[in-house]
């Protein structure tokens, strides 16, 4: 039993786009649906982030299945060129919990070029927010283009930042070329169902 025997879902995207907020919605849902879930946070304040998750998942995920992984100020390296420390953390999970079904790995916030190494994530979500600018999808960042699912978060903020959701949708459809994307408001918990259903269908039933 090791990292190859468990489904791994990567969550990438720029700092503050809502990765943690999304993970906080997704994990309890996956647990509710009967999966045993582990969570890894890669970030500046790694252990602090892990503690935030331990607190918010106090009733759903045992603390030893939540880990912070340091990436030496190189969040993209940690999920792409050299995911070895993340994989080592997954190995530690599976050693103690052989029945583990899935591990959610939140990348430290990075730029639009960060993608997940396919040996680290079987499926990867890229989270951007409308508040970062209407033109984000148009830049065709590798994260935006290659993600298995692109999540466009903070739709509630669109009116305050002069972002036109119709423009974003049209641009996104063009750069994604048929690959899926979803709009969410992680503050109100809207759009999460569609994301969770897709993950369960594509990763956990497969």
């Amino acid at each position: 039993m090791g990292y190859r025997d468990v489904a791994k879902i990567g969550v990438g995207g720029p700092v503050g786009s809502g990765k943690t907020a999304l993970v906080e919605h997704l994990v309890p849902r996956l647990v509710d649906d009967g999966y045993e879930v582990g969570v890894i946070a890669n970030d500046i304040m790694t252990q602090e982030d892990a503690d935030v998750f331990r607190e918010s998942f106090a009733d759903v995920v045992p603390p030893e299945l939540i880990e912070g992984v340091e990436t030496g100020a190189c969040p993209h390296t940690g999920i792409r060129e050299d995911p070895s420390m993340n994989l080592a953390a997954v190995d530690e999970f599976t050693e103690r919990h052989p029945g583990l079904d899935v591990v959610v790995i939140e990348s430290g916030g990075d730029n639009l070029a960060a993608t997940f190494n396919p040996e680290l994530a079987d499926y990867f979500l890229f989270v951007i927010s409308v508040a970062e600018g209407e033109d984000i999808p148009r830049k065709r960042g590798p994260g935006v283009v290659q993600a298995d699912l692109l999540v466009i978060n903070k739709v509630d903020l669109a009116p305050y930042v002069d972002a036109d959701l119709e423009v974003i949708e049209a641009d996104t459809a063009a750069v994604r070329e048929g690959a899926p994307f979803a709009f969410t408001d992680c503050k109100a918990g809207e759009g999460i169902d569609a994301v969770a259903e897709r993950i369960e269908r594509e990763v956990l039933f497969a």
Binding site: G72, D82, P83, S84, A88
Partner: peptide
């Protein structure tokens, strides 16, 4: 890829 960049 052995995680050297995470050690100081």
């Amino acid at each position: 890829p052995v995680g050297g960049y995470t050690a100081s």
